[in-house]
Computed example of a mutant assay.
Amino acid sequence: MNSNTVSSIRCGFIGLGSQGAPIARRMIDAGFPTTLWARRAETLAPYRETPATFASTIEEVGAGADHVGICVVNDDDVREVSGRLLPAMRPGSVIAIHSTVHPETCREVARHANEQGVHLIDAPVSGGSPAAEAGTLTLMLGGDEQIIAKAMPVFESFGKLIVRLGDVGAGQHVKLINNSLLVANLGLAYVALEAGKLLEIDKEKLVELLLASSGRSFALEVLSRMENPADFRHGGALLRKDLRLLSELLAERHEAAAQLAHAADPFLAAASMPAHGTD
């Protein structure tokens, strides 16, 4: 990556959670001048020894950035943050939404951005915090080709497979399919392990054999590391939300969402149970 290109793109980042935090760190370590904002001061503590600067308001982030990444939790958060960013941002600047939200939310924000002369890319990511830390996230992009090309140096600081899938919203479409398939596979893996339990097969040996055989899957790897699916209650709720969004998008056009939801249900039911030590 050209050092002149890096130093010329002033970045902002909002949403320093488990995935957003390592994304922002990769951008900072790559040399992008980066401004951060967080609701809680302690969230910024890990960046105190870095070249990052800190904004006191969201508007301050927008005013000083050519490219702002957003990785907040839900649609309402995306609307709130972008609603405060956009009036402060200069024409020609870019917002990248890394959150997993409804595609129409991205299109709605894109329309408001266009009124300000700002460009929007929906850019959900896959791989979790380990991939973010390693700079190997998968980015699913929706937006104008030329704007994506402009933002590519930033994306390459934390992504490995970076694919434009269409116009704004297309990235979210693929992310919802990906997450729905993941939770469906979790449901199937959960049922498979329950079958092993009923047949009195040692779980560790069963998992070892399955992961070395044709029944292996990423979902089975994830499930094998869970002591109890109920400990994944928060993540399960997010995946249930993604299934619901995909169902809304497909409506009556296809039964794919219903089939995915049916496969996912055993795991989601287990994940919604009270965790160990709770009532």
Score class of each variant (00 low, 15 high):
Leu165Cys: 00
Gly171Met: 03
Val168Gln: 03
Ile177Pro: 06
Gly236Glu: 03
His234Leu: 14
Val168Tyr: 00
Ala184Lys: 04
Glu200Ser: 15
Leu182Cys: 08
Ala195Trp: 07
Glu200Gly: 11
Leu165Asp: 00
Ile201Trp: 12
Leu186Gln: 00
Val222Asn: 12
Val191Lys: 14
Gln172Cys: 14
Leu188Glu: 14
Leu198Asn: 10
Gly159Ile: 04
Ala237Phe: 09
Glu204Met: 14
Val222Phe: 13
Ala189Cys: 02
Gly169Met: 04
Gln172Arg: 04
Asn179Val: 05
Phe158Val: 08
Glu204Ala: 15
Ala184Cys: 06
Val207Pro: 02
Met152His: 02
Ala184Ile: 07
Leu176Tyr: 03
Asn179Met: 08
Lys160Leu: 10
Gly215Leu: 10
Ile162Arg: 00
Gly215His: 12
Leu188Ser: 12
Ala230Gly: 05
Glu208Thr: 15
His173Asn: 10
Ile201Val: 15
Ala189Phe: 01
Ala170Asp: 01
Ala212Arg: 13
Ser180Thr: 03
Val163Ala: 10
Leu198His: 13
Leu161Val: 15
Ala192Tyr: 06
Glu221Leu: 11
Ala184Arg: 04
Gly166Asp: 01
Arg233His: 14
Leu176Arg: 00
Ala170His: 06
Gln172Ile: 14
Leu211Val: 07
Ile162Asn: 02
Val191Pro: 05
Leu181Pro: 08
Arg216Asn: 15
Leu220Gln: 05
Leu186Ser: 00
Ala189Gly: 09
Asp202Phe: 12
Lys203Ala: 11
Gly166Tyr: 00
Ala170Tyr: 07
Phe218Trp: 14
Leu176Asn: 03
His173Met: 11
Ala189Pro: 02
Leu206Asn: 01
Leu209Ala: 15
Glu208Phe: 11
Phe218Gln: 12
Ala219Lys: 04
Ala219Ile: 06
Tyr190Cys: 04
Leu220Trp: 08
Lys175Cys: 08
Gly187Asn: 03
Leu198Lys: 13
Asn179Arg: 05
Ser224Gln: 11
Ser217Val: 06
Gly235Ser: 09
Asn178Ser: 02
Ala184Trp: 05
Lys205Asn: 14
Leu223Thr: 06
Gly196Thr: 01
Pro153Cys: 05
Leu220Met: 08
Asp231Lys: 15
Asn179Leu: 06
Leu209Arg: 12
Ala189Tyr: 01
Gly215Pro: 11
Asn185Ile: 08
Val183Cys: 07
Phe158Cys: 08
Glu204Pro: 11
Pro153Tyr: 06
Gly159Glu: 07
Ala212Trp: 00
Leu220Gly: 05
Gly187Ser: 04
Leu211Thr: 07
